[in-house]
Design a binder for these strands. Structure first.
Length: 906
RNA sequence: GGGCGUAUAGCUCAGCGGGAGAGCACCUCGUUGACAUCGAGGGGGUCACAGGUUCAAUCCCUGUUACGCCCACCA
């Protein structure tokens, strides 16, 4: 006998082990089967499962299990990302916390990397175990790591080839520099955060005490009317320390206020240098004083101006963000941290009487995504990918429809980014990652080759003799290797059978925040290197937020731990919650309450199976749903077929929410609430044929439910598949390897739907009637069908047992008129009356009837307003007009019957 | 500044050019052998606001308001 509920905690690990052992997660060999492939976005090796992973993984698992059931050969490729900066940070922190004197610096590159590897082997990749707890049906035998030999080989090949094609180059330009990690980062790794700051206004004195007339008042036409004599130019800055590196002051060429002094020089205070006043389009005359200090080496806009005017670039800071020791920095600032230098500069400017004013100002500050420190624009040598060129193919693939975004509106986001893409800085000044395959000779010549030997050979060819080479110290951006993931994991650059079969992949499932980081890069690399976009569709899902709609945050303690939810409610409940909430385009608010509700759903299903067991509902091979005779059985077969069809259709459209909802309402509201109840008289009756047929139909329907629900709730369905085999035929396979129900449209039976619908409506009406007239639940009463058509009379007789049972009647019969002291409701052509003399509450019944009459009247008025509108009758489609006429007639008839009932009450 | 999105029951959200829905919460009743992690019944909404298109608008268009997110910029 089945227990009263599914013991998820005990069963999940066991079931998962059985799945894996069966080999069901490997793609099937059958060459005639269509291929379906997904790469799991490789989680960071440092990662642990958060709720976003749980959603992402659940959706992919649903698709994979669904497609397997539909007969496809499915590859769900798992793996881990080495996560350069994140991992290096974890290991460094661990060393610091251990209390030993070891650090990255004392160990040196080689030893440090050994430590990282051993950390990876010991404690990396926990997240994969958590994904298994969630039920992820990845082919773990194919697990890859971005720094595996094979994948790394692909990375090197791509780098070398892009370099030879001129699409990777080394360049000195401004880059976002993270002073904490002492590395360059890409634009995407910089977050712009609004912070409270200040706006300092400085005066730069004109050379030799020169003066000019600065307009301070204007007439209506904007012509200056009043002037003051100035011997300085006023500039404003949010980063005062950078003034030490100013190369000019720029004004707009049309700015009349400064027209007279363009070309003259000002004294740069503290630095004691003279810098020119230049005219450039960059300054906005409306902003501040209209004059801008130009610090070419520490500001992206200023850099462009400096380039245009050939201004000198003064590098002010070292890799840690401290002021450099160079002699263009006054001695007192050398070596100071940039923020100390700022305080000092302000104090010194103030002491000189050149601090004009200080304003509070909310400003956007660039913050390192991982370090949290203020990013410094720095002039350095870095490797760049020419993203603009690679974007052409990546754009074309989406424009042509080769790759589609789901939902479609993300296409616009992708286009906007791709069309304005900047060169991608791919070098990082860290150790953990793919070392850049570039070698330098003493003269600074660069040889980019796949191996050191190749580089040596190239150098020899260049010099005519062997020369000493040193390899570039830098490693590649983590996203460089991730960008190759859809094909590097399949064995590329080798033409492997997996490449042939599973590339391009079918779909990639991810959240919108990594469209740029990951999807865009995969598109660029995929199109460039394989000639095909790496996936046919990109499914973008929502963000999971807390129950107040706020972004979850570990530090604020507002994050929900999915493994805790699994512990409490089981993996199925979590999965179902995520799936049913995963509608397109809206954040998913997560709360325990919802998960609890879907845990209950699993229990509901479990108990339906218990009912099957108690009633010996076993399925035999020979059962054919097309040969079923009893209408209730025909009806459930029909409903199930529609549901299976609906679930498949929704999944085909990636509407996980609709698919889950279809399952939910069918299982609970149709199968459990109606079918189980309607079938009870049959299962306990004397008609052996009907009983047998019902038992088999019940078992068959339960089997189909397990199949269509399995992608969403794999554990409980698998367990039931196994358990029901204990009282039925042995199963040939695990449920995870079973096939999707065949969608035979001939099983859809509208006549059965109508008939059972009528019965259900009758039962519901009777129950409602009883409740509203305060008939005690224990009282059994007779019911009469008045003014019945032949058809409904037959139905009443046929379903008398069901109706009597579910509406708690003694008997139901056809009569000519309602007896005195009866209450009634209207069902189509007929009136249903229950004789309640002595038990009913006449006052309550009168109120109820009056309410029904009012409802009918309201509907009639609404419809009649429509029908009385000449425009409607003239222009609306005939079927719509007919429909409205029928509605009006229906409500008229209904109201008439209620009025009659009211009249009978006297 | 550019882009995207959201506004429907107390809460969370579906839906949709012609009859306002679900889950949770709430109220009433109920331990009839699948299930109290349950069952039956019920109350509750000018579908943000204002215009427009249409015979007909919660749905389409325009605008307004509020909220959210992304990109860029603020020297």
């Amino acid at each position: 006998m089945l227990a009263s509920h599914f013991a998820a905690k005990e069963a999940e690990a066991r079931i998962y082990a059985a799945w894996e052992a069966s080999g069901a997660f490997k793609p099937k060999d059958d060459p005639s089967a269509a291929a379906f492939s997904i790469v799991l976005p490789p989680p960071n090796v440092t990662g642990t499962l958060h709720i976003g992973h749980a959603l992402n993984c659940t959706l992919q698992d649903i698709l994979c299990r669904f497609e397997r059931a539909r007969g496809k050969s499915v590859l769900w490729q798992p793996g881990l990302d080495h996560a350069g900066i994140a991992t290096q940070m974890v290991v460094e922190r661990q060393m610091a916390a251990s209390g030993s004197n070891e650090s990255r610096a004392t160990l040196g590159r080689e030893k440090f990397l050994e430590r990282v590897w051993s950390w990876k082997h010991e404690s990396g990749g926990q997240i994969n175990e958590q994904l298994k707890r969630l039920g992820a049906s990845c082919d773990w035998s194919r697990e890859r790591f971005t720094m595996d030999a094979g994948v790394s080989q692909a990375v090197i090949k791509v780098f070398v080839q892009l370099h030879k094609e001129g699409l990777i180059y080394r360049d000195k330009r401004l880059v976002n520099w993270d002073p904490m990690f002492e590395t360059a980062v890409s634009d995407l790794e910089v977050l712009n955060e609004e912070r409270q700051g200040h706006f300092w206004h400085f005066k730069y004195p004109l050379e030799n005490g020169q003066t000019y007339q600065f307009p301070i008042a204007f007439d209506d036409d904007g012509a200056p009317t009043e002037f003051e004599t100035r011997d300085y130019i006023s500039i404003a800055t949010t980063r005062p320390e950078t003034m030490l590196g100013d190369g000019a002051v720029a004004v707009h060429p049309d700015d009349v206020r400064y027209a007279g002094i363009v070309g003259k020089r000002v004294l740069l205070p503290l630095a004691d240098r003279y810098i020119p006043i230049i005219a450039d389009d960059y300054p906005d005359p409306e902003l501040g004083s209209g004059a801008v200090k130009i610090t070419g080496a520490h500001d992206f806009n200023d850099y462009k101006v400096a380039k245009r005017h050939g201004l000198p670039l003064y590098i002010l800071m070292d890799s840690k963000g401290a002021m450099v020791l160079d002699d263009y920095i006054p001695a007192k600032y050398r070596g100071l941290d940039r923020f100390e230098a700022r305080r000092q500069v302000i104090a010194d400017i103030d002491a000189l009487g050149l601090l004009e004013k200080v304003e509070d100002k909310v400003m956007m500050q660039p913050i390192g995504e991982r370090s949290g420190v203020v990013i410094e624009p720095m002039l350095t040598d870095q490797w760049y990918v020419d993203a603009k060129k690679l974007a052409v193919g990546a754009l074309a693939a989406v424009e042509s429809g080769e790759t589609k975004f789901i939902p479609e509106n993300w296409t616009a986001t992708y286009y906007q980014w791709m069309r304005n893409i900047e060169p991608w800085c791919v070098s990082r000044q860290i150790w953990w990652g793919h070392r850049i395959p570039a070698w330098y000779d003493e003269a600074g010549n660069i040889f980019v080759e796949a191996t050191q030997d190749d580089a040596k050979a190239a150098a020899k060819a260049h010099h005519g003799k062997d020369v000493a080479l040193r390899q570039d110290e830098d490693v590649l951006d983590t996203w460089f290797s991730s960008g190759l993931w859809p094909f590097s994991t399949l064995g590329w650059p080798n033409q492997t059978p997996e490449m042939a079969r599973f590339y391009p992949t079918s779909t990639v499932v991810t959240m919108f925040d990594i469209i740029f980081f990951w999807v865009a890069r995969m598109m660029m690399f995929g199109v460039h290197f394989t000639g095909q976009a790496p996936f046919k569709s990109v499914v973008i899902h929502s963000r999971v937020v807390d129950e107040h709609g706020k972004k979850m945050s570990k530090s604020k303690g507002t994050s929900i731990d999915p493994t805790a939810l699994i512990d409490t409610y089981g993996a199925d409940a979590l999965r179902f919650t995520l799936a049913i909430a995963a509608g397109p385009g809206r954040d998913i608010r997560m709360s325990d309450k919802r998960v609890e509700g879907y845990r209950n759903f699993g229990t509901k299903l479990w108990n339906a199976a218990r009912f099957a067991q108690m009633n010996e509902c076993t399925l035999w091979e020979a059962f054919d749903p097309a040969l079923v005779k009893h209408t209730i059985n025909k009806w459930i077969i029909s409903e199930l077929t529609k549901t299976a069809y609906g679930v498949a259709t929704a999944l085909g459209l990636h509407r996980f929410d609709e698919a889950a909802q279809a399952n939910y309402s069918f299982v609970w509201n149709v199968f459990c609430d109606l079918y189980v109840e309607l079938v009870k008289p049959l299962l306990s009756g004397d008609d052996e044929d009907a009983k047998n047929e019902t038992r088999q139909t019940f078992a068959w329907a339960l089997d189909q439910i397990l199949k269509i629900l399995h992608p969403f709730m794999p554990f409980v369905t698998e367990e039931l598949w196994d358990k029901t085999a204990e009282f039925g035929p042995k199963r040939a396979t695990l449920l995870c390897a079973a096939s999707w129900p065949s969608l035979d449209a001939s099983l859809i039976d509208e006549a059965a739907t109508a008939e059972v619908g009528w019965v259900v409506e009758l039962i519901t009406g009777l129950r409602s009637l009883r409740a509203e007239t305060n008939v005690p639940a224990s009282a059994k009463v007779p019911a009469l069908l008045i003014g019945a058509t032949k058809e409904s009379a037959i139905r009443l007789e046929r379903y008398q047992a069901e109706i009597d049972r579910l509406a708690r009647l003694d008997y139901s019969m056809v009569a000519n008129e309602a007896p005195a002291g009866s209450v009634s409701f209207v069902l189509g052509e007929a009136t249903i009356a229950i004789a309640l003399e002595g038990v009913m509450d006449i006052g309550a019944e009168k109120t109820r009837l009056a309410k029904e009459i009012a409802r009918c009247t309201k509907e009639i008025d609404t419809v009649n307003r429509k029908l009385d509108n000449p425009g409607f009758v003239a222009k609306a489609p005939p079927e719509v007009i007919e429909e409205q006429r029928e509605r009006a007639a229906g409500y008229e008839a209904e109201r008439g019957k209620y009025e009659a009932a009211l009249a009978r009450l006297g």
